[in-house]
Amino acid sequence: MEDSFSTYHPIINFFYFSVILIISMFFNHPMILGISLISAILYAVVLQGWKKALKFNLLFMLPMLIIVALINPLFNHSGVTILFYLDNGNPITLESIIYGLVMSVMLIQVIIWFSCYNIIMTSDKFIYLFGRIIPALSLIFSMVLRFVPKFKAQLKVISNGQKCIGRDITNGNILMRARHGVTILSIMVTWALENAIETADSMKARGYGLKGRTAFSLYRFDNRDKGMFGVMLILLVIFIIGVSMGNTFVQYNPIIIINGIVPMSLSSFFTYFIFLVFCLIPVAVDGFSAMKWQKMKEVIPEKTKCAEIRVGIEAQ
């Protein structure tokens, strides 16, 4: 499915992920963790498709969950409910096992959120966001992104050139190969440094270094973005009020205390619900836009739609 949350302004994307990542890093209330984990998986599925997301989760996340959940009790012996003693006399406690599980869930959901973040927050958006605050470094960032593929291509050219004089990493024994590899890298470095001087000239020729440099971008903060920003702020404020009322308090050591679940008060339920809504924003945005296209399909026949898209792209 095509993601439409990423078409929002970079500030919206970045704000959303900052909030989500901070909450999922700083809160270890089981309810919050659970909601966050489920939403993260859902969004990962939307972005990467069932197959890829499932493979990622089963292959990397499940073993990690088990390892982290197991390792924690080995080093952490605090807690009041002692289950049994290890050979070296250290106790294994229920609290530490539960804490291990909580930690592993937290780690996993952070990583899944990051996998979504990596897809949405492209380098372009970063350059835009930091272009105003740290202009020189964000320019360096853009230049590095320009140079890396350029160097990779040149590396290929050089290694072909070296192949033609019988010096490639496929020629000779291990030692020779290593030496050829180093020679290729050395040629590349010289080439990169010497040719960069023209890049510097080109920057100066276009007035780099004048006072009052601005940062241009293709992004526009339109009404849709304003609306979304408002919604996110309101949800966040309500959530913070809920948090300050102690609905997300939790303690695992030495005895487990979890607020808000048993018994569930209205205010704690509302806090969790608001968080769920916040977590599901991207998925909801994608769902709505998919529904819209479905409706449009009935109005506009398929072919004209394609033509329109093409016109739209060309107009850009």
């Binding site: 230049m143 320009r146 890049t199 080109s202 007035g207 780099y208 009052g212 241009f216 293709l218």
Partner: peptide, 21 residues
């Protein structure tokens, strides 16, 4: 090749204008 500073076409087009503020 060497004159291009940034990674995107549109950014490259805007580079001089950004410098001029």
């Amino acid at each position: 090749e060497n004159q291009i500073v940034t990674d995107k076409v549109w950014h490259e087009l805007a580079f001089g204008l950004e410098s001029l503020g």
